[in-house]
Amino acid sequence: MTRQNTALWLPRRGARFEVGPAPYTPPAANEVVVRVRAIAVNPIDGIPGFLYRLALPWLTFPAVVGSDVAGEVVETGSGVTRLRPGDRVLGHAFGVDKSQNRAAESAFQHYAVLMQHMVAPIPDSLPFAQAAVLPLALSTASTGMFQQDHLGLAIPGAPDLSQPVDRSETVLVWGGSTSVGANAIQLARSAGYQVVTTASPHNFDYVRSLGAAAAVDRSSPTAVEEIVERIGGSPLAGTLAIGSGSLTKTIAVAARTTGSKRIASAQPALFTRITARRARRLGVRVSSIWGGTLKDNEVGPAIYVGFLPGALSTGAYRAAPDATVVGHGLAHIPDALRQLKNGVSAQKLVVTV
């Protein structure tokens, strides 16, 4: 069968996106090709050209970008036994990652090549648009929480709703209503940790519905003191710092609580490195998350193969935040990116294709 592919191209740094034909790339060993049905957008997808030189200096042009996809498997490469053509899946696309750096593996197109261990089957009850909110945020949260060079927390196994694990430790998630935060809360709870988080007050019910035991107003002048009080005598297992201003506050919390002094930061790497130097004086270790490294270690398959399929099918894990569909067709992706720059709260912008 001859398949015709179409992509949303970035012809060069700083150029506008253009819809145009793209080659259909068959899968290599341990890869699958997915007919993309829904794509979520992320801030890195729409950064100005000069920032691409800082964030993705290796990216070759013309380029296709994008990380979050959901759709149907149409072809599998050698060595793939867990996925078949016709399977409904979500997956993390790595075309902009330094180790991959090829248009065929990015999300903004009709047919994307994905690593099979970074793809998870989804239940029929989960719409593609809602499934697409997960991959990059899930990967970023998983990288920060479970990789040994970050927090090194226990990775959740297959969910057992009758006998939940209780580790008697607390994870602090600063920024619980963000996409990364929504996944971090659920992952920590699935692994048996209590979660204390921050959010705007209008999102308190939302983060509690994801499993947070307590929520504190991130803008409160007494947020640090309130978080320390909520954690109480429970040892801190680790902290995930998400969003502007999170590092300074989480360092203060870590310095005043018992347990782990490790913070995984989802803020820009340069800012994280500068702040990390100051944190060492307080005995706090800060590391910078790159949400794609889990594909190269045990965390990626543990989440996408071992945990997520069962957790989604049983309802133990929720595809969050809620998807807001901006339009249908690749040409609507720039519209979604413009809306994203204006700011969203407890939602993810999605384009169907």
Rank of each mutant, 00 (worst) to 15 (best):
K98I: 05
I39P: 00
H110I: 08
I122A: 05
D149A: 14
G291V: 13
K249F: 00
R208I: 15
R88A: 09
P21H: 00
A311V: 00
L59M: 10
R84I: 07
L151K: 05
G175D: 10
P27A: 10
P48F: 05
G144C: 11
A212P: 02
V32I: 10
F128G: 05
R12N: 11
R102D: 02
G211Y: 02
N101P: 13
P301S: 04
W58L: 06
T272S: 12
T250W: 04
L56D: 00
V326K: 08
S179I: 00
V207A: 07
A104H: 02
G243M: 11
I263D: 10
S125K: 03
Q147R: 15
A40I: 04
R278P: 00
F307P: 09
E169M: 12
A104N: 07
K295I: 10
S287R: 15
A55D: 00
V69K: 01
T275V: 14
E226V: 04
D97R: 04
L270E: 15
A182Q: 14
A191G: 10
T197M: 03
L172W: 01
R167Y: 01
E226Q: 13
Q4Y: 01
G291T: 14
A323M: 01
L240G: 08
D45E: 12
R278H: 09
A120V: 01
H328G: 05
G49F: 10
G14E: 04
V173L: 04
R278M: 09
A319D: 02
V80S: 12
P48K: 07
L83Q: 12
R273Y: 09
A269M: 13
D335F: 01
E225V: 12
L187D: 05
I274Q: 15
I227M: 03
S234V: 14
I122S: 04
V96S: 04
H110L: 15
V171H: 01
L136D: 05
I303G: 07
L83C: 08
G343V: 14
E229V: 07
E31T: 10
L240N: 07
L54N: 02
R12Y: 03
Q339H: 09
E229Q: 09
A131W: 02
N183I: 01
A213H: 05
K98C: 02
A40W: 06
V69A: 11
R16S: 15
I333A: 08
L90S: 05
D87S: 10
